[in-house]
Nucleic acid binder design. Structure first.
Lengths: 218, 218
DNA sequence: ACTTAATATGAGTATTTACTCATAATTATA
DNA sequence: TATAATTATGAGTAAATACTCATATTAAGT
């Protein structure tokens, strides 16, 4: 249960092809087992069984249960980053307007989280992560904020004296709301399309409102 | 480790005064232990030790580890609800304008979460909760949305054709953002006051923008 | 003072589970 | 084909931990 010793680098790295396949199979199995059992009850033996390999094999490539979770999380971070840059590319090339751009952003993030909502939740919240991974998460978030800022800045109708803060809030908002919405697929009492529309509406209103420090908007 | 059997009602209920004190002491200890060790590593023996009672005593009043977590969570829900109604009362009595009202709302929620940020996080995310508690959380959230809606509706400058959705998004936003912000006290790279201002700004802009279903705000 | 009910004790148990290691099977290489 | 390197095996181990129960202590009722 409680981790004995902390090792994140594998005992052996896969060099032949069959072992690379094995690693993939293990990660896939881990995904499924964590999804259906959670982190604590997602035992390494169960993962190995599901993967169709022996427990010994699993520990050849992952020195600890934690290492498996970290590997899955790293995959997710990479994919998110990829998605984000893809999005920026599309928006620039296709000359979408601000509303369309944000719409695609929110939709994209919602899709990302909707894919494996339980897994994300488990990895991000239920798993006790080492500090270094926690740092990586924060950095990824700030990187995302900068990327979004870089794109939004291009739209002339948006002028702000404090883009840093604005974009920070926007990224946090989209991240939080889509995550929440996707995390409870059964309990959604407003439809998906409406949800996206509302979030986009809010962000645009925010971006277009007067940005002076202490104005009584009212 | 893994829960053996699920019992949430205690073996004995405290009738004398000393036992009521004991229950309180145990809950306080649980708070501290969960805060510093997390849920999984927050063992019942540790909680008992911290409380200065024997493990047997603990199990007289809490039939399982889970029951302790549930008790703590119920306390939190009650307190949140109380805060919310208090807030509504203040706003109505003191005739605050929309901006002030929202400011207090966001500040209040931020304070709530900032109190014991790690504990909240552990109870809400790290602890495997029984379905019935999960339902209670959702209901509390919807109740909160209605309360907020009831207040905001009073302000004449806000007119909307779909208050339900708007308030749902607002409550979710405030809940998510303040939770996130409070959860990482070290990593905040925008100051607290600024954060609150920005969130309020966003909500007001959202509330005041045109609410027609498909308008190109751009 | 005496009886009964309530409360406290903590060593011990049953179970779970992350992880090891000696050995076997497979593939590459010479 | 012979040898070495890589990969796979899975019964077994050590540790952790949620929870019990027979007994002791304290308070309430009379």
């Amino acid at each position: 249960m409680t981790a004995r010793k902390q090792r994140l680098d594998p005992r052996k790295k896969p060099v032949q092809n069959r072992s690379k396949v094995t690693v993939d199979v293990i990660l896939l199995a881990a995904t499924q087992v964590f999804e259906s059992h959670g982190y604590a009850a997602g035992t390494t033996n169960r993962i190995a069984a599901r993967a169709g390999v022996s427990i010994g094999t699993l520990y050849q490539y992952f020195p600890s249960k934690e290492a498996i979770a970290v590997a899955l999380l790293e995959r997710h971070l990479t994919e998110t980053d990829h998605r984000l840059h893809e999005w920026v590319g599309h928006m620039v090339v296709e000359q979408h307007n601000l509303c369309e751009a944000l719409h695609e952003y929110v939709t994209g993030m919602l899709e990302m989280h909707a894919k494996q909502p339980r897994l994300q939740h488990i990895l991000l919240e239920e798993t006790p992560l080492p500090e270094r991974v926690h740092q990586a998460l924060l950095e990824a978030e700030q990187h995302a904020a900068k990327t979004v800022a870089g794109l939004i800045r291009l739209y002339p109708e948006v002028r702000s004296n404090c883009f840093e803060h604005t974009c920070f809030v926007i990224v946090q908002t989209v991240e939080s709301l889509t995550h929440r919405y996707a995390a409870h697929p059964d309990d959604q009492f407003i439809p998906r399309a409406t949800f996206v529309d509302e979030v986009v509406k809010m962000i645009i209103a925010y971006l277009k409102c007067d940005m002076s420090p202490h104005n009584e908007v009212l």
